[in-house]
């Protein structure tokens, strides 16, 4: 009789631990969510050396001074890229002089870092497919990433270029920071 009671207690403990283990697995299973999205800056934008009073100075799409970003992510998804830039480049050091500038950007989403494939963005925000898909009716929604499905990653390229207007200003180094926000749609 005593032997039987001991056996029952041990059985209950085993069952309790087993149930706890099942709870933990349930929580982890719910955590499959998003694809990764990474970007690297390949090149800053540099107008190089200009004379004071030079007036309008332009870096065109494809020029050596343009800025370049590479975005790597799920080829089945779309991304939204937003560019935020100040109105002026400001001088390093004690001077109130500024250089007004305007920027544009373009993207290449056919798998190659090739300006000939670039599409010029209109405005400061653009939405595009990480990899350009064939035109036509929309297909089935992309399969969410999971342990059973790892989507193929591709790299799209962002090119930043534009103009500045250099008046009769103090000589020196002028800089400005441009923010790019990249998110899945």
């Amino acid at each position: 009789m005593i032997r039987n009671q001991i056996v029952k207690v041990m059985t209950l403990l085993i069952v309790w631990f087993f149930q706890t283990s099942v709870q933990a697995q349930t929580i982890q299973f719910s955590v499959h969510v998003a694809s990764s999205l990474n970007a690297t800056k390949d090149q800053d934008m540099n107008f190089d050396t200009v004379l004071a009073g030079n007036g309008l100075t332009t870096i065109n799409l494809g020029d050596a001074g343009m800025g370049v970003f590479a975005i790597t992510g799920n080829q089945e998804l779309d991304v939204i890229v937003t560019m935020t830039a100040p109105a002026n480049l400001t001088r390093t050091g004690a001077s109130a002089d500024v250089i007004p500038f305007t920027l544009e950007f373009a993207y290449a989403n056919r798998g190659a870092n090739d300006i000939n494939q670039a599409v010029v963005a209109s405005g400061n925000t653009v939405r595009f497919q990480m990899r350009q898909r064939a035109s036509g009716p929309a297909g089935a929604p992309p399969t969410p990433p999971s342990s059973a499905h790892a989507p193929t990653e591709v790299t799209a390229y962002i090119y930043i270029y534009g103009s500045m207007n250099v008046g009769m200003i103090d000589a020196g180094s002028y800089t400005g920071n441009v923010d790019l926000s990249v998110t899945y749609d």
Binding site: V31, S36, D44, V50, G53, T57, V182
Partner: peptide, 24 residues
């Protein structure tokens, strides 16, 4: 895991624009 996925899906990047002006 949740915190990590939040950073991966939405990213901010910076690019510097620069020019060196010399006296004319």
């Amino acid at each position: 895991t949740t915190a990590n996925f939040g950073q991966i899906g939405n990213s901010e990047f910076k690019l510097q624009v620069s020019a060196t002006v010399v006296d004319y």
